[in-house]
Design a protein around this nucleic acid. Structure first.
Lengths: 151, 151
DNA sequence: GTTTATGCAAATATTTTGCAACGTT
DNA sequence: AACGTTGCAAAATATTTGCATAAAC
């Protein structure tokens, strides 16, 4: 994500371009594919911008979610997490497979959901704009470990 | 869910059959298809069992989730919710369509995911045991309202 | 110069935990 | 009798908010 486009988006919404907002964007852009908590983002951003406050992080991620620059995800471990989104064009973000043993999160792409969305739209008149899929189970190495243990 | 089977499940895990646990089960069983917060369950159970404490509700839903009697769901409104599961046999529980305007949650069934699970299993060696799908968008009446407003 | 954003600290809200008393086995 | 469970209150955790100051427009 280029900074220029981001500044534009802020102005379009009547929001101000601040050093803090740019710094948080930079942190997110530097960690694509990672699932960061507010605290993570705080610590990372603080390295380049020590005066920033945690409340600002919370307020800024809200803005970034509304602008669809980042996605909010939750893996039910008590933390809300954020990750860089697919960008404003591609509303087709990826899904997550979560290992119940080691907690690893594997992201994957999928196009199968379009059929499901159409079916739901037809069946209950629900207009789908976004979706989220989580698969739970065991990652390759934990699955092998479990198999070995059970023998 | 019959109480007898539940008592058996508790004993199999070395847990005790208490009035509190039976009361919470009864509350959940009396509200199938609803998405209840811990507070909801507390208030409902208290009507029949006024001495029960909120901490016991939290401890009991943990047990019920582990026994797969109920499912934990979250609609990102700051509350963790619980609903009666499909039972111990059918691990194939339903999904949720969440209206971004009015917050309505519509549950629906789907079998399409088996293909996706197989594909993921083949592609990344992830052994899927459970899944969760959330669709976001607008329910029929909110979609109509939006359409009318934009004209 | 007006308006919006920030930082800090305090407030809020949900969930967890320590511990003595109690109920189940 | 032994051990797990409960209720209460206190603690812990994550996030939000009030407000004076500072920065952006």
């Amino acid at each position: 994500m280029e900074q220029g486009r981001f500044k534009e988006m802020l102005r379009e919404k009547g929001l101000k371009v601040t050093r803090q907002r740019m710094a948080v964007l930079e942190t997110m852009a530097a960690h694509p594919g990672e699932h960061l908590t507010a605290e993570d983002i705080y610590e990372m951003t603080r390295q380049k911008y020590p005066e920033i406050g945690l409340a600002t992080i919370y307020r800024t991620v809200q803005v970034l979610v509304e602008l669809r620059v980042i996605d909010r995800v939750s893996f039910d471990d008590g933390f809300v997490r954020y990750e860089l989104g697919g960008g404003e064009v591609c509303r087709h973000h990826h899904h997550h497979a979560i290992c119940e043993d080691c907690g690893a999160v594997i992201s994957f792409e999928d196009d199968l959901l379009e059929q499901l969305e159409q079916a739901v739209q037809d069946a209950i008149g629900f207009c789908v704009t976004d979706h989220e899929v989580k698969l739970y189970g065991y990652c390759r190495s934990c699955a092998e470990k479990r198999k070995a243990d059970s023998e």
